[in-house]
Simulated scan of single mutants.
Amino acid sequence: MNPTITSSIKVGTLKGVQILVVDNDIDSGVLLTIFLSYFGANVTTSASIKEAVNSLTCFFPHIIICEIRFLGENVYVLLNKLAEIESFSKNHIPIIVTSTCVNGTTEEIPEIEFAGYLLKPIDLDKLLVMIEHLLPLGGNNLLVEPLQHSFINSLAVADSLLTEIKENNE
């Protein structure tokens, strides 16, 4: 980390910011959780796409940091769930994409609108700056209160369950 960059970012800068880290590399997930928590973020880490989708039933992130290469799993399952939540709640959830691959990674996912791309090993200074720029008016002035996020997410889950029941009955 560069002390001149991180010195301008204070502990607590990300207070109240909900971040979902989706990474099949446990060490990367732990590193990001510890680092972002230090700055006040509420971080949930998922080691698989399935786990991330399940966590969205009770955790409404403001930002997602997601590895795009998963063996045996398709990242589109998560992206489809996010699209469903966003369409219901009308709140966009920015995605910061990470990868260990240099060539062709972002071209593999042309339909995904992502807010940023970071190559592993992640430059933590760039990550912090990227997150700060994605937050409306800084981390302490989020658009929707956490209880509202929880309520909206619960409605999205209920809507999804009703749709599934309806499809099963047809």
Rank of each mutant, 00 (worst) to 15 (best):
G40D: 07
K15F: 05
V129E: 05
F60W: 07
N42E: 15
D123A: 02
D159F: 09
F88Q: 01
A115P: 12
M130D: 04
L36Y: 10
N169R: 13
T45S: 07
I131C: 08
V53K: 07
L36F: 06
I5C: 02
T163S: 15
E132A: 03
R69P: 00
I165A: 09
V17A: 10
I5P: 03
T106A: 11
I85G: 04
S28A: 14
I34Y: 13
D27L: 06
A158L: 13
E113V: 08
L137Q: 14
L135C: 03
I112M: 15
L124E: 04
V43N: 08
I85M: 04
I93C: 05
T33A: 13
I152Q: 14
N24H: 13
V75H: 02
S160G: 06
H149E: 12
I165F: 14
T6F: 05
I95L: 15
E164D: 12
E170V: 06
P3E: 08
C101I: 14
S87W: 01
L20D: 08
A115N: 08
I95E: 04
T13A: 12
T57F: 11
D23N: 10
K81Q: 05
T45N: 06
M1A: 13
G138A: 02
E84I: 00
S87A: 00
I34Q: 14
T98R: 05
V30H: 10
L14M: 04
I85Y: 03
G12W: 03
I63S: 09
K120L: 02
I49P: 11
K166Y: 10
R69C: 10
Q148D: 13
G29I: 00
F35D: 04
I68V: 12
C66V: 11
L20Y: 07
T163P: 04
I165P: 07
D125T: 02
T33C: 13
N42A: 07
N24Y: 07
I9N: 03
C101E: 15
V53W: 03
A158K: 14
S37Y: 06
I112S: 04
V17Q: 11
C66T: 12
I19L: 11
L36D: 05
P146D: 12
F88K: 02
V17L: 02
S160I: 00
T44C: 12
K126A: 03
K81I: 01
A83T: 06
N91D: 11
A47L: 05
V53E: 07
L162K: 15
A158Y: 13
I109T: 05
V97S: 13
V77L: 02
